[in-house]
C-alpha cells in the first residue's frame, strides 16, 4: 500500500479484508473448474472467468497498481500464449493422423495419485483459461487506467 492509497477516504476496511480472505480461494476455485471441466461442470472459459473475478475483486480494492503487483507480466503474454497453446493442441492431432481438434486421451499410473486420466482437451482448455484471464487483466488495465484518470 502506498501512502496515496492510505490517504484515500473511499477505502473500505471491510471490503479490503474480505477480498484479502477470498482472493486466493477464488483463484484456486477457478483452476479447479479448469481441471474438472472434462466430465463435470466447468472448463477453461468458466475457470478463466472465475479466476478473472479474483483479479476484478483485487482491482476494486487496490486499483490498477495492485493488479500490476499481483501479476507482474504484460497481460498480452497470457493472452498470446493461451491462444498459441489452444491452436497448437488442435493442430497436434495432425501429427497423430487425426483431424484438426480431434481429441485423444492418456491414462497414467502415477505413484501417489493413482490412475490419472488426461485428455488433449485439457491443454486446449488451459489455453482458453489463459486467454480469458489475460483478457480480463487487459480490460482492467486499459479501461481501468482511463477510468482512474
Amino acid at each position: 500500500m502506498t501512502t496515496s492509497e492510505r490517504a484515500d477516504p473511499s477505502r473500505s476496511v471491510v471490503l479490503e479484508t474480505a477480498v484479502r480472505l477470498v482472493f486466493h480461494t477464488v483463484l484456486v476455485f477457478g483452476v479447479y473448474l479448469l481441471f474438472a471441466g472434462h466430465n463435470q461442470p466447468g472448463g477453461g472459459f468458466v475457470g478463466g472467468l472465475v479466476a478473472g473475478c479474483a483479479f476484478v475483486l483485487r482491482y476494486a480494492v487496490t486499483g490498477r497498481e495492485g493488479i500490476g503487483r499481483a501479476v507482474p507480466v504484460d497481460p498480452v503474454l497470457p493472452l498470446g500464449a493461451g491462444l498459441l497453446l489452444a491452436g497448437v493442441t488442435g493442430a497436434a492431432a495432425w501429427l497423430l493422423d487425426g483431424q484438426f481438434l480431434e481429441s485423444g486421451k492418456v491414462e497414467l499410473d502415477l505413484p501417489v495419485l493413482g490412475v490419472v486420466k488426461a485428455t488433449s482437451a485439457l491443454p486446449f482448455d488451459t489455453g482458453v483459461f489463459l486467454v480469458v484471464v489475460g483478457l480480463v487483466l487487459l480490460v482492467l488495465r486499459t479501461l481501468g487506467a482511463e477510468a482512474e484518470q
Partner: peptide
C-alpha cells in the same frame, strides 16, 4: 453468450471513449 460478452465489453469501451 461468450461472443456477446466480448463484443459488449468492446462496445462499452467505445461508448466510454466517445464520452471522454
Amino acid at each position: 453468450i461468450v461472443i456477446t460478452f466480448g463484443v459488449t465489453a468492446f462496445l462499452l469501451a467505445l461508448a466510454f471513449r466517445s464520452w471522454l
